[in-house]
Design a binder for these strands. Structure first.
Ligand code: MN
Ligand code: MN
Ligand code: ZN
Ligand code: ZN
Lengths: 143, 143
DNA sequence: GCACAAATTAGACAAAGTCCAATTATTGAA
DNA sequence: TTCAATAATTGGACTTTGTCTAATTTGTGC
């Protein structure tokens, strides 16, 4: 993962490097995404951005997340049919999904290897290979 | 995949084997699921079931799909953030997803192997490993 | 300041899915 | 059969996630 410090000047530079004008709202959203918690949903990001003082609308959060995805700053994680999660880590990696809690953890791609994938139909090219390990507590009620 | 013939008596038996009372609506839905096309969304199933003559409601389609999933008759495929697809094949296998067309194709698990998956946290157990290969036409506009 | 483009916004809208109270179908005992 | 009890189905209201649009605000350069 690209090493990123989470202060305004470096986030501003990060956006500029991806051809994105660094507005106040976009910086707030970037700060939430690249700050501590990974794998947040749009709703969670909206809430965090407006925690101290309301300053960003729902429309802008969605606009910005889609823009960041298009420009390759972040990527979507599709594991929960109810909502999309956004991942500031765009390096190839995979996910461990706790189906009970909804928590998502990274699986580094380094150690992992997949063999035996079929050839794609002619004219098709791989956009990505997503591996999701779904896990739950071994005994539903007890420990 | 369990070998299933798609006539009423065998579908009835299939439901009974899974502890599901075989009502008219459930049999219609099972017929659509286990008939030709795999990987259908709830909406597509609703449309097919009511193709000849309207006889099943949206609520029943959702109720039934959830019931079939709970009882292990079918499974969900989470690849498209907009809708869930339902898979009558519950054997371990993976999916090739055409991001342009939305088409989903099976990848048989036989040939495929994954190594280097991390250990799960204590007390956790794997519910499944989903591999999704996302592909698109190699050149966006031309062939 | 002024003009022009780009970004943001509130709120209407759309689609997927759930929920509920009322109706209808199924079951199985008499 | 008939009947009562139970289970399934239903229309439609509702919720949630996400998109769209027209109006406003902001930013930039002159
Ligand atoms: Mn702030
Ligand atoms: Mn029919
Ligand atoms: Zn991740
Ligand atoms: Zn499949």
């Amino acid at each position: 993962m690209e090493a990123i410090s989470y202060n305004r000047p470096s986030l501003t530079a990060l956006l500029r490097r991806h051809g994105i004008a660094p507005t106040h709202q976009r910086l707030e959203i970037a700060q939430v995404l690249f700050g501590r918690c990974h794998h947040l949903s749009a709703d969670q990001i909206l809430a965090r951005v407006n925690e101290q003082h309301a300053e960003t609308s729902k429309a802008t959060v969605y606009n910005t997340l889609n823009l960041f995805c298009d420009r390759g700053l972040i990527r979507e994680v599709i594991v929960d049919p109810k909502r999309v999660f956004y991942d500031p880590n765009t390096d190839p990696h995979h996910h461990l999904y706790n189906v009970d809690t909804g928590e998502i953890t990274d699986i580094h791609a380094g150690a992992l290897s997949v063999s035996g994938l079929p050839e794609l139909p002619p004219g098709m090219v791989t956009e990505g290979v997503d591996i999701i390990v779904r896990m739950r507590a071994s005994s539903p009620s007890v420990g």
